[in-house]
Amino acid sequence: MVSGEQTPTQYIQHHLQNWTVGEGFWAVNVDTIFWSVLLGVLFLWSFRRVAKKSSAGVPGKWQCFVEMVVEFVDNSVKESFHGKDKLIAPLALTIFVWIFLMNLMDLVPVDWLPTAAMYTGYWLGFVNDPHDVYFKVVPTTDLNTTFALSLSVFALIIIYSIKYKGIKGFAKEMTFTPFNHWALVPVNFVLESITLLAKPASLALRLFGNLYAGELIFILIAMIGFFQLPAHFAWAVFHILVIVLQAFIFMMLTIVYLSMASSEH
């Protein structure tokens, strides 16, 4: 929906702008936080409902679905992570479901929620011009979200490395692999640091890139007028794959990184 006063460029830029409160680094993207927290709470609430009355008896339909998801995650964890750990499985479940739900917001037609927000904001008197309202509904198209996730995982990678190998073991791994020679310690360190840092960077950018691109295409499709409907449908069908796949990849890589961090070479 391109309104009269907007050029396509303005329309796209408008759609890709977060609702930001504050200035500089301490600014906060309210829309990102709002939707991600809402979806996270939705996830935990709906799963908690099952957890509360879960029993070994005959499960209900929702319980079946939840258990299916849980078992799927549990199997993925068991395949990759050997050893006992109370954190990794719930961590993987949270990552998978939460990212999936955030990605799913991409399927909501791109103008619905922003337009609703625009007029609500104007009507409530927050802004003088409806076009001053920015509202991005897909939290994973915000680098802040993806980096928050990947950096948390990164912190866990380091914690697990130290926990399972000790500080000495971790330092040794950083300096004596892949070339086991004291003269090559600096080279090793550079290589290993890049490897280590590439993990969170690739995690965050992969998710962000996929979803951002998908969102952008939805926006472009939304500009072609009435015939956007079949195009929209086609892209949405394709995008369902991306949504699930990206959530799965993020979860799987987290498990793999943590299992690598906790096992000896």
């Binding site: 930001t20 680094f25 906060v28 680098l143």
Partner: peptide, 14 residues
């Protein structure tokens, strides 16, 4: 789409 304090909020939420 700059990195800002949102990342802290998101990390805490996560």
């Amino acid at each position: 789409m700059d990195i800002n304090a949102t990342i802290i909020g998101q990390s805490i939420a996560f």
